[in-house]
Simulated assay, not measured.
Amino acid sequence: MSGFRDKGFGDRLSTAQNARKAMLERVRAKPGADDPAVAERRAARQAISAAREARLAEREAAKVAEQARVAAEREASQAAEHEQRRAQEANEAVERAERAERQVALEAEQKAARDARYAARKARK
C-alpha cells in the first residue's frame, strides 16, 4: 500500500481550481461572434434554412396543385355521370312512353277483335 496517497483538502482545492482554469481557457479559446469563420457558418446555416423553406413551400404548392387537379377531375367525372344519368333517364322515359303507346294500341286492337267476334256471334244467331 505504499502507492496509496491520501488526498488532502489542499489537493482537492487545487484540482478544482485547475478544472475552473481549464474551462475558462476553453471558453476563451472559442471564436467570437465577429470571427469570419463564425459568420461563414452562420451564413451557411441561413442558406440551408432558406433552401429548406423554399423546398417546403414548393412541396406545399405541389400538394395544393395536386389537390386542385384531383378535385377538378372528380368534379368532371361527377358532371359526366350526372349527364349520363339524365340521358339514361330521358331514354327510359321515352321507352316507357313508347311501351305505353304500344300497350294502348294492343288493347285497342284486342278490343276491336273482341268486338268483331261478338258482332259475328250476334250475326250468326
Rank of each mutant, 00 (worst) to 15 (best):
M1Q: 07
M1E: 12
R5P: 02
R5F: 12
R5Y: 15
K7W: 14
F9P: 10
G10L: 14
G10D: 13
D11C: 06
D11Q: 04
D11M: 08
R12T: 07
S14L: 13
Q17F: 12
Q17L: 08
N18S: 12
N18L: 13
N18Y: 05
M23C: 02
M23D: 14
L24K: 13
L24M: 13
V27T: 09
V27G: 03
V27S: 05
R28E: 10
A29P: 00
K30N: 08
K30E: 15
P31L: 07
P31A: 09
P31V: 02
G32I: 02
G32M: 02
A33D: 13
D34A: 01
A37L: 09
A37I: 05
A37P: 01
A37S: 08
A39R: 11
R41I: 13
R42M: 00
A43C: 00
A44M: 09
A44W: 09
A44G: 05
A44K: 15
R45M: 06
Q46R: 08
I48T: 10
A50N: 05
R52E: 14
E53F: 01
A54V: 03
A54C: 04
A54T: 06
R55N: 10
R55C: 04
L56V: 08
L56Y: 09
L56R: 14
A57E: 10
A57I: 03
R59S: 06
E60K: 07
A61L: 11
A61K: 12
A61Q: 12
A62R: 13
K63P: 01
V64P: 01
V64R: 15
A65M: 03
A65I: 00
A68Q: 06
A68G: 04
V70K: 08
V70R: 11
A72K: 14
E73R: 09
E73W: 01
E75G: 04
A76W: 04
A76M: 08
A76I: 01
S77G: 06
S77I: 09
Q78F: 09
Q78H: 08
A79C: 04
A80Y: 08
A80W: 09
A80M: 12
A80S: 07
E81N: 07
H82F: 11
R85H: 10
A87G: 05
A87D: 05
Q88D: 09
E89G: 02
A90Y: 02
A90L: 11
E92M: 15
E92Y: 01
A93K: 11
R96K: 06
A97G: 02
A97W: 00
R99L: 10
R99Q: 09
A100E: 11
R102A: 11
V104Y: 05
A105V: 00
L106F: 03
L106Y: 05
Q110I: 06
Q110G: 02
A112V: 02
A113M: 05
A113P: 02
D115E: 15
D115Y: 07
D115V: 10
A116T: 11
Y118G: 10
Y118E: 15
Y118L: 15
Y118I: 15
Y118D: 15
A119M: 04
A120F: 03
R121H: 14
R121T: 12
R124D: 09
R124A: 14
R124M: 11
R124Q: 13
